[in-house]
């Protein structure tokens, strides 16, 4: 797509590939923010990013306390049982103050705002999942080819 540089963004396609809290939230905030601005949006969940829309997993998304240099916590501390749950609890408290909803509520809100939500076919097959394993907001399970078709004219964002 040709973009002259100062053309307003009309459509975004956001790919979510990571299943940690810090991997999922930025994408949700960006998708919701796009709709708030009147920008068309669709989300494509792939690999562990699918946890955000898997019925049994979406309420248990956690911050990664190991291998996450942003937390400034040594690996050995991050390994302590309960550390990830603790960091997640702290972060959720801060998010609630900013009126950022829990994952499930956020997904419903984004979908109600008109954002389309898709899961990646290759990942679904790899993890032996089916449509019934996903929350009701997932519109479809689509291939990479279909994703590109649906993204015609969109800016693609990978998180």
């Amino acid at each position: 797509m040709e973009n002259t540089g100062n053309e307003p963004i009309k459509k975004v396609s956001i790919i979510v590939s990571k299943g940690s809290l810090e991997g999922i939230y930025p994408a949700l905030i960006m998708a919701n923010g796009a709709r708030m601005e009147g920008i068309d949006a669709s989300m494509f969940f792939t690999f562990f990013g699918m946890d955000a829309v898997i019925e049994k997993r979406m309420d248990y998304i956690k911050v990664a306390t190991v291998g996450n240099p942003g937390l400034h916590m040594s690996t050995i501390v991050g390994m302590i049982p309960g550390m990830s749950a603790f960091a997640t609890k702290m972060m959720k408290k801060e998010m609630e103050k900013l009126d950022i909803p829990p994952v499930r509520e956020f997904i419903t809100m984004i979908h109600d705002a008109g954002c389309e939500i898709y899961a990646c076919k290759a990942s679904v097959e790899m993890f032996h999942l089916a449509k019934k394993d996903f929350c009701k907001e997932v519109d479809d399970i689509i291939s990479v080819g279909q994703f590109y078709e649906k993204s015609a004219g969109a800016q693609i964002i990978f998180t």
Partner: peptide, 27 residues
Amino acid sequence: PSIRKLTKESGVDTKELYALFPKGPAK
């Protein structure tokens, strides 16, 4: 208010909000 607060306190849900104010309800 945020969209979430707006919907919770007004009783107008997200879908209706976007229908009432198409193309960017908050703004």
